[in-house]
Amino acid sequence: MAHPDKPLPYIGPDTAKFWAAAREHRLSLPVCETCHRAHWPPGPVCPFCFGDGLTWRDMSGRGTITTFTIVHRDWYPALMVNGPYNVIQVELEEGPRLTANLVDPPPGGPRIGMAVEVIFDDVTPEVTLPRFRPRQAGERNG
């Protein structure tokens, strides 16, 4: 069983721009030139209006936790060295929901409705993972 030490994203043609922007510490998503909606995961056309014209734009990086889990199973032993860890889904202000981790979680861990903002974690010279940290702001009910 060959586990990579810490798994890295599979970067392909549809997601390459996302990861390239992340290396520059930008959270960039495809936005439709016709209906102006951002979408995730990145696709070849706008999934809402089927338009072909997409422009990658930087997002605010602000969002809200909509669900989360704490992983106890050592599916990836290298990620379990400090014990169970969280995985969150974050709804960005622009709409799409991303999966990530909450860094510096408050006592009690992530909560649905918690306001968060992006940070950038340079995990290798080539790969930067966007993650999120708690943000001082009003909470809303996810």
Binding site: P9, Y10, D14, W75, Y76, V87, T99, V123, L129
Partner: peptide, 26 residues
Amino acid sequence: LGGVDAEDMREEGGTHGESPHYGLTA
């Protein structure tokens, strides 16, 4: 299956939300 989940290998994530780089699989 590599010990985990073949859907890890979809670049946009798996059907169950698999995102191996964030530690989510299976």
